[in-house]
């Protein structure tokens, strides 16, 4: 997948060997039915190699790891109430 860090530079689209990537409404999107993780073409995913802002993270496990690095992005809501003004982090 391509995360919201995407700056719409088109580098991934141009590099993709199987044309799996197209511009979406707010960022580029990888078509998972076309993407083959660059097997047989390159040793690592070419979009990940080309992306200048590390927005292309083809493997889901990589994406989850990235969530841990970008604090609070995609990692569950912080619920704030009157009795709990500093909030409680939900896991999902």
């Amino acid at each position: 997948m391509i995360t919201a860090e995407c700056i719409n530079c088109s580098a991934c689209e141009l590099e993709c060997p199987v044309r799996a990537i197209e511009p979406g409404p707010s960022k580029y999107l990888i078509d998972p039915d076309v993407c083959i993780d660059c097997e047989g073409y390159f040793p690592e995913a070419r979009c990940k190699w080309a992306c200048p802002v590390d927005a292309c993270v083809p493997e889901r496990t990589d994406y989850l790891a990235k969530d841990g690095i970008i604090a609070n992005r995609g990692s569950g809501p912080l619920v704030v109430t009157l009795d709990n003004p500093h909030g409680t982090k939900l896991t999902a």
Binding site: G74, G76, P77, L78, V79
Partner: peptide, 17 residues
């Protein structure tokens, strides 16, 4: 504003895109 909303019993969920 946050205080006013909380005092009215509203829950605020942050980081909730």
């Amino acid at each position: 504003v946050r205080r006013c909303l909380l005092e009215h019993g509203i829950e605020i969920w942050l980081f909730s895109r």
